[in-house]
Nucleic acid binder design. Structure first.
Length: 99
DNA sequence: CGGATGACGACAC
DNA sequence: GGTGTCGCCATCC
């Protein structure tokens, strides 16, 4: 049934569902929508700028290279658990599990 | 129609 | 732990 929704709309719903201080990886989105990571990145890029695209990070926790690193600043303002310049993915997973 | 490109991921060194 | 390379798929020229 979800298949009736466009992949772009599915991705948008997933990204929009990510709370502040939390992040999601492209691989997670790709797995959720059932597409390859490359396509997941393409879909996120095609999302409207009003969606929290900065909460979408790489599998290693590094923020998207786009927007001249603006994602890093936004994540920091969101009190996202960071490890230097990278998001502490391990801690995010644990926090998500505790949620 | 063919080749190059890109908001990625996993693997090898 | 960091860097480099390949694979995969859709879109652009």
């Amino acid at each position: 049934m979800e298949a009736a929704l466009s992949l772009l709309e599915e991705v948008r719903r997933i990204v929009d569902a990510v709370p502040s201080g939390q992040v999601i990886t492209y691989g997670e989105i790709a797995s959720l929508v059932g597409v390859h990571p490359r396509q997941a990145g393409r879909l996120v890029a095609r999302l409207e700028d009003d969606s929290p695209w900065w909460r979408v990070v790489y599998s290693d926790g590094s923020p998207a290279t786009c927007h001249d690193g603006a994602a890093r600043t936004l994540l920091r303002e969101e009190e996202t658990p960071m490890c230097g310049e990278r998001v502490d993915v391990r801690r995010l997973l644990e926090q998500r599990r505790s949620s």
